[in-house]
Amino acid sequence: MGRREQVQNEELRGLIDESYAQMRQGQASDAVRTLVRCFLRLIELRPDLISRTIETAGGQRYPFLMSWPALGADLSFESLRKGKPEIELKRERFAISEAMTYYEFVLDTLLSSKM
């Protein structure tokens, strides 16, 4: 757990700061779009995330990126299979709790990736 100030990469920190400001202003939909940009840029910079896997209780492994929250900005499995992850916005409008969820996920991934 950490704070957005701990993100070292300036470009990514700029995006996470921008999304935070948008959340505070109640612009949840804009914040989600910014977080999607931030996450896709992170994957460009760290392509090893594409092959990172996590293990289930049954011992199976699946791609880490599939744990991206499916709250209307959904990561396509097909694009992940092709090695070029894409996130499709299924809705125009997002709620503040959805933006917060994406924010927490992106910030956690940035920090755990030491970016």
């Binding site: 499916a70 997002f94 709620a95 709790s97 969820t101």
Partner: peptide, 11 residues
């Protein structure tokens, strides 16, 4: 709808 349930919860 699974994709909208959090937004429904919040609203």
């Amino acid at each position: 709808d699974r994709g909208s349930k959090k937004a429904m919860w919040e609203e």
